[in-house]
Amino acid sequence: MTRRFGDPPETCRSYRMRRGAYAILPQGKSVLLTHQEEPQPEFQLPGGGIDPGESPLQALHREVFEETGWKIASPVRLGAFRRFTFMPEYELWAEKLCIVYIARPVYALSHPTEPGHDAVWMDMAVAAEALGNPGDRHFLERALF
């Protein structure tokens, strides 16, 4: 059974499964996050949805690059969590299955290519408090402390 974070599903709603891959990217005493402006400003673990025909690792590399501009190496799966949420950018209620990895940030290739995202290096302890969802916080704290 995968652990759930956040609000429980509402019985009156229909949720669409949305699988995603996310990365914890430590370097020294800092961690690389993405800051997303819309639909509300929020710090997140870099990552996102797994496209049809794509493996979780392929999605992880693609999404981290899109949201941070960084190339990563040596990803190791830490676990997964579920959360039920409304995704305004897709206008759907989703059951998100978030697969979390820890990986090594190798080097920045460019600025983020995903509109509305900025790459942010943050002290690990500060990042644990700043992340926008409790699942991200749980895995960051478990991996780094």
Rank of each mutant, 00 (worst) to 15 (best):
A143K: 11
Y101K: 04
F81Q: 01
A23Q: 04
E38V: 15
I99K: 03
A59K: 02
I24R: 07
A94V: 13
R83P: 00
D136K: 01
L97T: 12
I72W: 12
V126T: 10
L109P: 00
V64M: 03
P88A: 09
P115R: 15
A119I: 03
R16I: 04
R104Q: 10
K29D: 14
R77G: 05
E141Q: 14
R18P: 01
R62T: 11
A127R: 02
V76H: 05
W70V: 09
G79A: 05
A94H: 08
A125E: 11
L57R: 09
P88Q: 09
S55I: 10
M122Q: 03
V126E: 14
G135R: 05
A80S: 13
A73P: 00
G116K: 07
M122W: 04
P41I: 04
L97Y: 05
L92R: 14
D123N: 11
L57P: 01
K71R: 13
P52K: 07
H138D: 08
W121N: 00
G48M: 07
Y107L: 14
L57E: 15
A73K: 14
G20F: 10
P88E: 11
A23F: 12
D123H: 07
A143R: 12
A73T: 06
T68P: 13
E63I: 10
G69P: 02
L78T: 10
R19T: 12
P115I: 09
T68Y: 12
P52C: 04
S110V: 00
Q40E: 14
L33V: 02
G47P: 15
G47D: 13
E114S: 08
R62K: 14
L32C: 06
W121P: 00
H61Q: 10
A103L: 04
E141C: 05
E91R: 15
F84K: 08
L92N: 09
K71Y: 09
G47E: 06
W93M: 08
R83G: 02
